[in-house]
Protein backbone atom coordinates (compact mmCIF):
# COMPACT_ATOMS: atom_id res chain seq x y z
CA UNK A 1 0.00 0.00 0.00
CA UNK A 2 1.39 3.36 -1.04
CA UNK A 3 0.50 6.41 1.02
CA UNK A 4 0.52 9.88 -0.55
CA UNK A 5 -0.14 12.93 1.61
CA UNK A 6 -1.44 15.98 -0.24
CA UNK A 7 -1.31 19.28 1.62
CA UNK A 8 -4.15 21.67 0.86
CA UNK A 9 -6.15 24.36 2.63
CA UNK A 10 -8.61 23.52 5.42
CA UNK A 11 -12.12 24.75 4.58
CA UNK A 12 -14.67 22.87 6.70
CA UNK A 13 -13.57 20.87 9.75
CA UNK A 14 -14.19 17.17 10.26
CA UNK A 15 -12.47 13.96 9.22
CA UNK A 16 -13.65 11.30 6.81
CA UNK A 17 -12.29 8.23 5.07
CA UNK A 18 -13.80 6.60 2.03
CA UNK A 19 -13.61 5.82 -1.66
CA UNK A 20 -12.75 8.72 -3.94
CA UNK A 21 -15.03 9.80 -6.78
CA UNK A 22 -12.93 12.08 -8.98
CA UNK A 23 -14.07 14.41 -11.74
CA UNK A 24 -12.22 16.88 -13.92
CA UNK A 25 -15.44 18.83 -14.63
CA UNK A 26 -16.93 21.65 -12.50
CA UNK A 27 -20.20 20.56 -10.90
CA UNK A 28 -23.52 22.41 -10.92
CA UNK A 29 -24.99 21.49 -7.54
CA UNK A 30 -28.45 22.88 -8.24
CA UNK A 31 -29.18 21.29 -11.59
CA UNK A 32 -26.59 18.54 -11.47
CA UNK A 33 -27.38 16.42 -8.41
CA UNK A 34 -30.63 14.62 -7.51
CA UNK A 35 -31.26 15.29 -3.80
CA UNK A 36 -33.38 12.17 -3.42
CA UNK A 37 -30.85 9.67 -4.75
CA UNK A 38 -27.50 11.48 -4.57
CA UNK A 39 -27.03 10.72 -8.26
CA UNK A 40 -25.23 13.13 -10.60
CA UNK A 41 -27.65 14.01 -13.38
CA UNK A 42 -25.92 16.93 -15.10
CA UNK A 43 -25.91 16.51 -18.87
CA UNK A 44 -22.45 15.99 -20.25
CA UNK A 45 -20.78 15.66 -16.82
CA UNK A 46 -18.09 12.99 -16.66
CA UNK A 47 -19.62 11.55 -13.45
CA UNK A 48 -23.17 11.49 -14.81
CA UNK A 49 -25.02 8.47 -13.45
CA UNK A 50 -22.73 7.92 -10.45
CA UNK A 51 -23.87 8.35 -6.86
CA UNK A 52 -22.04 10.75 -4.51
CA UNK A 53 -23.42 9.24 -1.30
CA UNK A 54 -20.70 8.08 1.10
CA UNK A 55 -17.92 9.03 -1.33
CA UNK A 56 -15.04 11.46 -1.04
CA UNK A 57 -16.25 13.73 -3.83
CA UNK A 58 -13.40 15.39 -5.72
CA UNK A 59 -14.07 17.99 -8.42
CA UNK A 60 -12.39 21.24 -9.52
CA UNK A 61 -15.05 23.68 -8.24
CA UNK A 62 -18.76 24.43 -8.35
CA UNK A 63 -20.63 26.35 -11.00
CA UNK A 64 -24.10 27.77 -11.56
CA UNK A 65 -26.75 29.11 -9.20
CA UNK A 66 -25.78 30.10 -5.68
CA UNK A 67 -28.79 28.28 -4.24
CA UNK A 68 -26.94 25.08 -5.18
CA UNK A 69 -25.52 25.24 -1.62
CA UNK A 70 -28.86 24.02 -0.29
CA UNK A 71 -28.45 20.80 -2.28
CA UNK A 72 -25.60 19.68 -0.01
CA UNK A 73 -27.68 20.45 3.08
CA UNK A 74 -30.62 18.39 1.87
CA UNK A 75 -28.39 15.51 0.75
CA UNK A 76 -26.90 15.47 4.26
CA UNK A 77 -30.34 15.61 5.87
CA UNK A 78 -31.43 12.60 3.85
CA UNK A 79 -28.25 10.63 4.47
CA UNK A 80 -27.27 10.99 0.81
CA UNK A 81 -24.32 13.36 1.09
CA UNK A 82 -20.72 12.66 0.17
CA UNK A 83 -18.49 11.95 3.21
CA UNK A 84 -16.13 14.78 2.29
CA UNK A 85 -15.42 17.24 -0.52
CA UNK A 86 -12.08 17.96 -2.14
CA UNK A 87 -11.78 20.88 -4.58
CA UNK A 88 -9.01 22.49 -6.56
CA UNK A 89 -10.42 25.92 -5.72
CA UNK A 90 -13.24 26.40 -3.24
CA UNK A 91 -16.02 28.71 -4.41
CA UNK A 92 -18.79 30.20 -2.22
CA UNK A 93 -21.51 27.85 -3.48
CA UNK A 94 -19.71 24.67 -2.44
CA UNK A 95 -18.23 26.16 0.75
CA UNK A 96 -21.59 27.34 2.05
CA UNK A 97 -23.11 23.97 1.13
CA UNK A 98 -20.40 22.07 3.00
CA UNK A 99 -20.87 24.30 6.07
CA UNK A 100 -24.63 23.90 6.28
CA UNK A 101 -24.37 20.19 5.44
CA UNK A 102 -21.50 19.68 7.95
CA UNK A 103 -19.37 18.01 5.28
CA UNK A 104 -15.57 18.11 5.82
CA UNK A 105 -13.89 20.02 3.00
CA UNK A 106 -10.36 20.77 1.78
CA UNK A 107 -9.20 22.70 -1.30
CA UNK A 108 -5.96 23.63 -3.10
CA UNK A 109 -5.49 19.97 -4.00
CA UNK A 110 -4.12 18.74 -7.33
CA UNK A 111 -6.86 16.32 -8.35
CA UNK A 112 -4.67 14.53 -10.90
CA UNK A 113 -3.00 12.92 -7.87
CA UNK A 114 -6.24 11.15 -6.88
CA UNK A 115 -8.01 8.41 -8.85
CA UNK A 116 -11.58 7.23 -8.51
CA UNK A 117 -11.77 4.26 -6.11
CA UNK A 118 -8.55 5.21 -4.29
CA UNK A 119 -9.16 5.08 -0.55
CA UNK A 120 -8.79 8.64 0.67
CA UNK A 121 -8.70 10.28 4.10
CA UNK A 122 -9.68 13.93 4.38
CA UNK A 123 -8.75 16.04 7.40
CA UNK A 124 -10.69 19.29 7.33
CA UNK A 125 -8.71 20.82 10.21
CA UNK A 126 -5.22 20.02 8.95
CA UNK A 127 -6.22 20.61 5.34
CA UNK A 128 -4.71 17.33 4.21
CA UNK A 129 -5.85 14.60 1.86
CA UNK A 130 -4.14 11.22 2.30
CA UNK A 131 -4.38 8.80 -0.60
CA UNK A 132 -3.97 5.07 0.05
CA UNK A 133 -3.28 3.19 -3.13
CA UNK A 134 -2.72 -0.50 -3.72
CA UNK A 135 0.56 -1.09 -5.54
Amino acid sequence: MKKIILKGRPIVEGKARGKALVSSTPLNLLKGVDVNTGRIIEEGHDLRGTVVTGKILCFPHGRGSTVGSYTLYTLAKRGRAPKAIVNELADPVVVVGAIIGSIPMVDHIDLTKIRSSDIVEVDGEAGTVTVFRRM
Partner: peptide, 16 residues
Amino acid sequence: ISGVSYKTLGDAATEF
Protein backbone atom coordinates in the same frame (compact mmCIF):
# COMPACT_ATOMS: atom_id res chain seq x y z
CA ILE B 1 -32.13 37.71 -0.86
CA SER B 2 -32.31 35.68 -4.06
CA GLY B 3 -33.47 32.08 -4.24
CA VAL B 4 -37.19 32.69 -3.88
CA SER B 5 -38.91 31.23 -6.93
CA TYR B 6 -39.70 27.54 -6.56
CA LYS B 7 -38.54 27.15 -10.15
CA THR B 8 -34.96 28.16 -9.37
CA LEU B 9 -34.90 26.93 -5.77
CA GLY B 10 -36.37 23.45 -6.09
CA ASP B 11 -37.03 21.27 -3.07
CA ALA B 12 -33.52 21.28 -1.62
CA ALA B 13 -33.69 24.70 -0.02
CA THR B 14 -37.09 24.35 1.57
CA GLU B 15 -35.83 22.01 4.27
CA PHE B 16 -33.03 24.38 5.23
